[in-house]
Every structure is written in C-alpha cells, then in structure tokens.
C-alpha cells in the first residue's frame, strides 16, 4: 500500500536489490563488499544496575531506511546516543561507516545528519543563524534560504530560535540535520511536537532524502509512522532487540494470525478454548471472547467449539494488524508473549 504513495520505496525496500543501477550514488569502495553504515556488536549500556541497552547486534546497510521502534524507555535514544558518541558503551562496539564511534566521532559527524532527542536552542541566535552555524561547521555550501523554505520557516528565520514553538524547533533541527547532504540521517523521534501536517511534510522530506540514496535511521514509538517510510524495522523492548525484519516480513510473521471476537449471552469463561489446536491467545472481557489463532482456518473450530457451549450473540472476525504484533512484542507482550510462544511450540 505504501508503494503507491512512495514510488521510491520499491527501489529501496531491500538493499540487496541496489545493484540494479537505480541507485543514484556510486557504490562504496570495496566492490560488492560494502561496509555497513551502522554496525553494533554486543552493544551494552548500563546505568547503575539498569541495562538501557543489552547485547545489541544491529547492522544497517548503506541506502536502507531503517525504522527503530519501541515504547518510551526501550533503549532507542540510548542506542542513538551511543552511535553519536554522546555516551560511552559499557561493553561491545559501535561502528558507523566502518569507523569506531568513539575513536572517530568528528569524521563520522562530517557525514551524518542528526535530529537528536532532548536538544535545546538556548543560545540567543535566530533560526537563520543556527542554520548558518550548521552550514559553516560542516563546511558545506547549502543555501540556507532553500532549507528554511523546505521546513516552512522562511517567515520566522529572523526570530530567536529559543522563542520558537516546539514544532518549529523540531523543523529547524530537521533542516540542520539535512545540511551538507549527509550519507546517514539519524532521526530520533522526528515527529515529536509536530502537527499532523508537519508530520506528513517530515515524512515526505525523509522519503525524498532516502530516494537520493541516504541511509536513514529513524526512531519512533509510532508504528504507523515507520510503516510508511521504512524498508526494515527493528523493535526494541526493555533494552533488547526483540525483532528485526522488513515490514513485509513482519506481516508474514503475523500472516496467518487472525483474531475472532465472539459476543455471548453470558460471560464466556472456562469454555476450554485455550486447549484447541492453533489457538494462540484467549481474552475475555465482559461478554466478549477474543481468540487469536495461528491462521484464519482455525476460526471455524473456535466458533463451533464455543457455539456448543455458550449462546453466541454476535461474531466479529479481524486479521491481526502490525500494531497488535508491535504491542505484543513490547508492553503487551511481556506476559502474553512468552505464553504464546510456549503454546505455539506445543
């Protein structure tokens, strides 16, 4: 569905297809063996006895648009802070463009555009001056007016950035990240503070940048945001990477999973639905019984089983969305997820 909206994504969906000559950028030195843009090995960061990131192995290839998902506090920003050498790993390694993040921070920063989390425009500088500073520091030749126009700040360029609304600051920070056409764009929760229009514009800009071959590393707690622009996503939960796959792959994982809701005359408890073959999850809320099955074909067994034991008033059948999977992988999945796996194994 997102192919229709973003023509570029079919080109960039899978990095291995980039050899078809459609990529505007030349291949990196080293022939076919390109250096991953981001590579972490056993990356761990502990604050006291809390592991913010635990044993993270992540590889992002050049040209990918990677969505980094997870609820607040899952370790997304910590990972980004480690990539940028804002903080130092407890153990493990981080490489960006094949360079160690701690040993070559400046060289990495020359090629990276960053929209950080928790930034502040506290200097008494105007939006335009901040942008000029960004261009000067990167020794770039961008046209500040064009960048300001891109993020719709032309009229406010002469105002102090500290007085901007959160959304305007976010757009200014995004414009600064785009300076010098970076090889890697790291966006930490880019839609924070933006109105729906701003979110859409941001998404379009990210899509444009990605279409030029820029690798994008994009963190978010909104699946929908990532779904529309990313080739691949990684899901973090409590410091650990719980899933890495393409959007399609994730869909396949959910694939057969289907849910059915049965509204009964009496609360449908203790019907033994859990024991049925192919049933993954059972939830009861008032008179509604929600059953998740490994594939839609199992639904009929559930209906038959329940109809024999209770008075079914209504039936609602749904396919499980990625959102459900995401919830299962993260907060919702902490208890249910483990049981689900166990039951499927049986």
């Amino acid at each position: 569905m997102h192919d229709a909206r973003y023509g570029w994504s079919s080109v960039h969906r899978c990095p291995s297809r980039h050899s078809d000559g459609e990529r505007p950028r030349p291949a990196r030195p080293g022939g076919g063996l390109t250096v991953p843009t981001i590579e972490t090995r056993g990356l761990t960061k502990s604050f006291g006895d809390v592991d913010a990131v635990l044993d993270l192995d992540l590889t992002i290839e050049a040209g990918e648009v990677f969505g980094f998902l997870g609820p607040n506090g899952a370790g997304k920003s910590t990972t980004i802070n480690l990539l940028l050498d804002y903080i130092r790993p407890t153990s493990g390694s981080v490489e960006v463009f094949g360079m160690d993040a701690q040993r070559h921070p400046a060289k990495i920063r020359e090629r990276v555009g960053v929209l950080p989390e928790g930034y502040g425009f506290d200097d008494p500088l105007t939006g335009r001056e901040y942008l000029d500073w960004a261009i000067g520091t990167k020794d770039a030749d961008d046209d500040p007016a064009a960048l300001l126009d891109l993020v719709s700040l032309t009229d406010d360029a002469g105002r102090m950035a500290a007085d901007y609304s959160k959304g305007m600051q976010q757009r200014l920070a995004f414009a600064m990240a785009l300076v010098d056409d970076p090889d890697l764009l790291i966006l930490d929760e880019p839609s924070t503070g933006l109105d729906p229009n701003g979110v859409r514009t941001m998404r379009e800009n990210v899509a444009d940048v990605a279409a030029d071959g820029t690798t994008v590393f994009f963190s978010s707690h909104h699946l929908a945001e990532v779904e529309a622009v990313c080739d691949r996503v990684g899901v973090m939960n409590e410091g650990e990477l719980v899933a890495v796959d393409s959007i399609d792959g994730l869909r396949d994982t959910v694939g057969g999973h289907a849910a059915i809701e049965l509204e009964c005359a009496t609360p449908p408890t203790e019907l033994g639905v859990e024991a049925l073959d192919g049933v993954v999850d059972v939830a009861v809320e008032d008179h509604t019984l929600t059953v998740t099955c490994v594939d839609p074909g199992r639904k009929i067994d559930v209906v038959t089983h329940v109809a024999e034991r209770a008075d079914v008033v209504d039936i609602l059948s749904t396919t499980v969305s990625l959102e459900t999977l995401f919830n299962e992988l993260t907060e919702g999945g902490r208890e249910g997820g483990g049981e689900t796996t166990a039951e499927v194994a049986q």
Binding site: L84, Y86, A106, P116, E117, G120, D122, A134, T137
Partner: peptide, 21 residues
C-alpha cells in the same frame, strides 16, 4: 554545564566537533 543541562551540547556534537573542541 549549561550546554549539557539545556541540550545545546546535542547540537554542538551533532556536527563535526569533538569534545576537545
């Protein structure tokens, strides 16, 4: 400290500057 407390350092170090700089 001010840059650290306000988050200004995030910008200083998002560009090709080192901590030494």
């Amino acid at each position: 400290t001010g840059e650290r407390a306000s988050g200004g350092i995030k910008f200083l170090l998002a560009f090709p500057n080192t901590r030494r700089d």
